[in-house]
């Protein structure tokens, strides 16, 4: 039985697993953006918070993914369901690039532009929302893009704690020493990563602030 036949025969399951995968990554990314962007703003605004915040996100990044899933198992509420663990772990991984790029985007805004905004009597919030964040969008999106691609890959390991996704095929294939099964998980995961990378890349270029 060749690979194509295998894919044809199991397209339902593969599609199902792909959707699970997208769901895990999607929710994790939403969470990571919701937490990471404000943290990035804090890092840019309060230099004394930069070390603890970036340091913390850095540590999360260095924990081996399988271990991180394991660490989260005993956490109350989170540990109750496999998907919660998976989403929390993925969001943690996605955090660092998002925080770092948001901060870089904001601190990268030309001083003259900030001065002009301040000088004309804009409040700090108005400067943030109408000037700094819009001018940082493309840098922020570059971080989100890196994080998404990273997360699509790591999400395959979520299957180890029973959270589903394309990792199911990979783990089963490994256990049964079945390459087709492994590829049934790996190929869609790779495609997902490529598609996410492409789409977010397009958005990123669209949002590129016009510069002379």
């Amino acid at each position: 039985m060749n690979l194509l036949e295998y894919f044809a025969r199991h397209h339902r399951e593969i599609l199902q697993a792909t959707l699970e995968h997208v769901w895990l990554v999607g929710i994790a990314m939403l969470l990571a953006v919701a937490v990471g962007v404000p943290l990035g703003v804090l890092v840019a605004r309060q230099p004394w918070l930069a070390r603890p915040i970036l340091g913390g996100a850095n540590i999360a990044e260095t924990i081996p993914s399988l271990a991180l899933f394991g660490f989260l198992l005993p956490v109350p509420w989170l540990g109750d369901r496999a998907e919660r663990i998976a989403i929390a772990a993925l969001a943690l991984y996605a955090l660092l690039p998002i925080i770092r790029n948001t901060a870089a985007g904001i601190t990268g805004v030309d001083r003259a532009i900030r001065d002009a905004a301040r000088g004309m009597g804009m409040t700090e919030w108005q400067i943030l929302f109408q000037v700094e964040l819009p001018l940082s969008f493309s840098t922020m999106l570059a971080g989100i893009r890196v994080a998404t691609v990273l997360t699509v890959g790591i999400a395959t390991i979520a299957a180890a704690v029973g959270a589903g996704g394309l990792g199911e095929f990979i783990f089963r294939g490994l256990a049964m020493v079945n390459n087709q099964l492994i590829l049934a998980g790996a190929i869609p995961a790779a495609l997902l990563a490529l598609i996410a990378d492409f789409l977010l890349g397009v958005c990123e270029r669209r949002l590129q602030p016009a510069r002379s």
């Binding site: 030309d110 001065d115 905004a117 009597g121 016009a210």
Partner: peptide
Amino acid sequence: RIGYVIQEVGLFPH
């Protein structure tokens, strides 16, 4: 209440 033209102009590029 104070119009301010800064030396570097500082128009908003977006």
